[in-house]
Amino acid sequence: MENSRRSFLKLAGISAIGLGTKPVLDAFASSEAHGEKHGPEIFPNQEALTAKRWAMVIDTRKFESEADLDPIIEACNKIHNVPKFKEKRHEIDWIWVDEFKHVFTDLEHEFVDDRLKHLPFLVLCNHCENPACVRACPTKATFQREDGIVLMDFHRCIGCRFCMAACPYGSRSFNFRDPRPFIKEENKAFPTRMKGVVEKCNFCAERLAVGKMPACVEASNGAIVVGDLHDPDSEVRELLKNNYTIRRKTHLGAGPAIYYIV
């Protein structure tokens, strides 16, 4: 916040000097003439949901088949204008399902119990503590917020796809073509993407900012919980304390923030 205010003033100052236009100076002068000492400032919403470190716990015991997961995926796709392509090559996924052996490649074994073997698992961006994609990005188009959420700035992405090579979880998709014609119903409250940029789950940052829980959480009937990992009293901490949880490919040290209760 401090930073953005400073950069705002800097920018405003530079442009004022640069253009030297009277109206700009007038604008500054007039606000001072009214005796108000406000500079323009930007803040987070008051009702925004915040955390020191966001994390998600998925209780897979509450799921039985893909039918239980479809509404969750559908909710996400709809809200975020995720397109549906016929061509497999162009596929874009924010949250999707896969089998245990593919999701937990290093935990899989021949005699894994029947339930796990056939249960579909939700997969999404892990919002890693130590994200390889953020390290790889040459423009900071993908970045990690202080609260741990790994985001994409679609305005800045040059589409080099270095992040896709870097992600050890295969959580990123690329817009190989204009996605617009492939979105069934556009959600007018959320932008689509354009061709040539990478995208992925954004932990519903746009919803947290206005005080709403992520779409998948809302659609999950309590099977998915998000909360603050650094708050010992949070619901996620409660779940982690009382249940055995696993994460994907922990040996890589990326520190995924998505926990699975199996």
Binding site: S4, S7, H34, E36, G39, E41, N45, Q46, L151, D153
Partner: peptide
């Protein structure tokens, strides 16, 4: 617009207080 964009996308700042408050 540029400042708003970076503020919203990168820092979750969504409230703008103008010079007039």
């Amino acid at each position: 617009l540029d400042i708003w964009r970076d503020g919203v996308v990168r820092e979750a700042n969504r409230v703008y207080i103008s010079k007039k408050g």
